[in-house]
Nucleic acid binder design. Structure first.
Length: 435
RNA sequence: GCACUUCAGAGCAGC
């Protein structure tokens, strides 16, 4: 690493940016996440005060962000701040983008302002989109007003981010009013705006309105693209109308568009949801024969429909197949399995899967624990349920009211009123409010 | 120069 860093300084001096990035990227790939502490120490001990040092630090931050090693990037940025090296706005933008789902995003924005770095339109857009993705619509709108007050002329992308925020929270009508406001101000929708609104209409269950909107779009000179079709197909799936899908597929093909992985996943999910697992499997096979590389989401669609039918063992087989293909199960995949076992009453297996998940450092959440507790209560395993709760609070998890309610209900159903009252007192002591 | 906005998966109690 030492010689690589020396090489980096040389490249920086010669202005060979691209090579510098490549060399660093390769090194980060080898060192992996968690290596920032070590690399920073090397830089500090061996290259302090060297010319172009600031540039090397900055690109190190940026390459960590690009390699999805976000916390390493933050670490390097922090060290840079100590050394009074300044980062450029694009480095900040990329890092904020990686962290747009978290509070850290806004902290970084404040840091930018306090250091006198000038935010650009990308920055504003990332903040607004991030706030929307965190479901903080009011904050997003407030931020929007704030930058307008500072004299920033918002771009269409910012409006699109807001449209998307409203739509995904189910406020299509608000999105529609925003659209008419946009038109009044001379902002004309692009394909992103149209697709976003069509999506909003679809998830609100308004397929008809979505179709009308597609026509509007075409009248305004935009051809429906693959995203539009996928969005419409997904709308059909949500409304339980997947049997109508063929009409759209036909139209798609006539327009020279071919289904992609997302299209197939929507179709499989739709058919499975409607109880037609056979058709789902047929499409699945068609997909494989077409040479598509299945991903975690495609698998989870099938896993969940198997579990819903109580075929958890089948699901487990598929799960193993998935891992053998080199796909890393994520939180949702584990949820599906755990939930499946709980509903079947096989709590031991559920907990086993949960342990495997935890050993992979995947965070659990309260929903999942609720599912496990409910499974225990349904089988009358009250002492196990209480142990589980104790175990959760020992691990520092704040038990919420629903978790208490589940176990209280369990006590009541087994006729143990004492136990129920005991828990009730406990939740009051914990400062919770009964619902 | 790169980077921002649109499409697919699961999910807890009681009533």
């Amino acid at each position: 690493a030492l010689s690589v860093l020396a090489e980096c300084h040389r490249l920086a001096k010669e202005g060979q940016w691209k090579e510098l990035r490549q060399v660093l990227r390769r090194m980060l790939n080898e060192e992996g996440s968690g290596s920032s502490c070590y690399l920073c120490e090397l830089l500090w001990n061996n290259f302090r005060g060297k010319e172009y040092g600031g540039l090397v630090w900055e690109i190190l931050t940026d390459e960590y962000s690009r390699s999805q090693m976000t916390y390493d990037a933050l670490y390097v940025l922090d060290k840079m701040n100590n050394l009074k090296h300044q980062s450029s706005i694009s480095t900040y933008n990329r890092l904020m983008y990686s962290l747009r789902h978290t509070d850290i995003m806004l902290n970084l924005y404040k840091e930018i302002l306090s250091k006198g770095v000038l935010p650009n339109l990308y920055t504003y857009c990332i903040v607004i989109d991030g706030l929307c993705k965190q479901h903080r619509l009011q904050d997003a709108v407030a931020f929007f007003e704030e930058i307008k007050g500072k004299g920033v002329r918002p771009c269409l992308v910012i409006f699109n981010a807001l449209l998307s925020g409203f739509c995904s929270m189910g406020f299509v009508n608000v999105a529609m009013s925003l659209l008419s406001m946009m038109l009044k101000c001379g902002y004309f929708p692009d394909i992103y705006s149209y697709n976003t609104l069509i999506h909003g209409l679809c998830i609100a269950g308004s397929i008809e309105r979505a179709l009308d909107f597609c026509e509007d779009m075409e009248r305004n000179g935009f051809a429906l693209d693959l995203v539009t079709y996928n969005t419409m197909l997904n709308g059909l799936r949500i409304s339980g109308l997947i049997s109508e899908a063929w009409k759209f597929i036909q139209r798609m093909l006539l327009n020279g568009l071919f289904p992609n992985l997302i299209t197939y996943t929507i179709l499989i999910s739709g058919h499975c949801q409607g109880g037609n697992i056979e058709e789902g499997m047929r499409i699945w096979k068609e997909m494989i024969s077409q040479g598509y590389q299945l991903n975690v989401i495609t698998y989870s669609v099938l896993l969940s429909s198997l579990c819903k039918r109580g075929l958890v063992d089948e699901a487990m087989k598929l799960f193993n197949e998935m891992e053998a293909m080199g796909l890393d199960p994520d939180f949702i995949v584990y949820c599906i399995l755990i939930h499946g076992y709980c509903k079947k009453g096989d709590i031991e297996r559920a907990i086993d899967v949960c342990k495997v998940m935890c050993s992979k450092k995947i965070m659990t959440n309260s929903f999942l624990h609720g599912s496990i507790l409910l499974g225990m209560c349904k089988k009358g395993m009250m002492s196990k349920a209480v142990d589980y709760m104790d175990h959760l609070s020992r691990d520092g998890l704040l038990l919420d009211i629903v978790l208490y309610n589940i176990v209280i209900d369990g006590y009541v159903k087994t006729g143990d009123i004492e136990g129920a009252i005991g828990l009730y007192k406990q939740l009051l002591e914990a400062g919770l409010t009964p619902s």
